[in-house]
């Protein structure tokens, strides 16, 4: 049986957008939820949205990473745009997974100080995901 050579690129393209979008959405929801002035139903909804988007984003990294590894035949760094893509991907992957685990464990019991630290790492991770997406797009545009 011969595997379609374009199978992994197609699966990678289909799966990568979820963690990128969900990481950014989590940063947006949790950021807004944090700065929202007073306890209100909307603040709770924003916090809930942040909770679920970061967990889904963390779960979404696994198919994206696995399909990428199959697509590149196990290349973890590469060269040129692929190298830049990977320099963003690996810390973003670790960051998203770590943030997801932390959020599940803490639920809504985090102190304000630790939640600020969480938000800081979340924004940094969302930025890394954006960078990974940018360099991924560069590869598509240049191929």
């Amino acid at each position: 049986m011969t595997i379609d050579p374009a199978l992994w690129p197609k699966l990678h393209g289909a799966s990568v957008h979820f963690p990128v979008a969900l990481a950014m959405a989590a940063a947006l929801f949790d950021g807004l939820g944090y700065v929202w002035p007073k306890p209100s139903p909307l603040k709770t909804k924003l916090q809930s949205a942040g909770y679920f988007t970061i967990i889904l984003g963390a779960l979404g990294t696994f198919p994206a990473v696995l399909s990428g590894l199959f697509m590149t035949k196990g290349e973890v760094l590469g060269h040129d745009a692929l190298l830049f893509h990977h320099l963003f991907v690996w810390p973003a992957f670790a960051g998203l997974v770590g943030l997801g685990v932390w959020r599940v464990m803490m639920d809504d019991k985090a102190s304000p100080r630790s939640f600020i630290a969480y938000l800081t790492v979340l924004f940094l991770t969302a930025g890394l995901m954006a960078g990974a997406g940018y360099w991924g797009g560069e590869m598509i545009l240049n191929s």
């Binding site: 590894l69 199959f70 196990g74 290349e75 992957f93 670790a94 997974v97 770590g98 464990m105 630790s114």
Partner: peptide
């Protein structure tokens, strides 16, 4: 909070390690 932080770091490291092993296997 300490447990959550350690778990997050541990799972993130394990995930990176698993990705590395997957790369080697592939």
């Amino acid at each position: 909070e300490g447990k959550a932080l350690i778990s997050a770091l541990l799972v993130a490291s394990l995930s990176l390690g698993a990705a590395g092993l997957a790369a080697i296997s592939i």
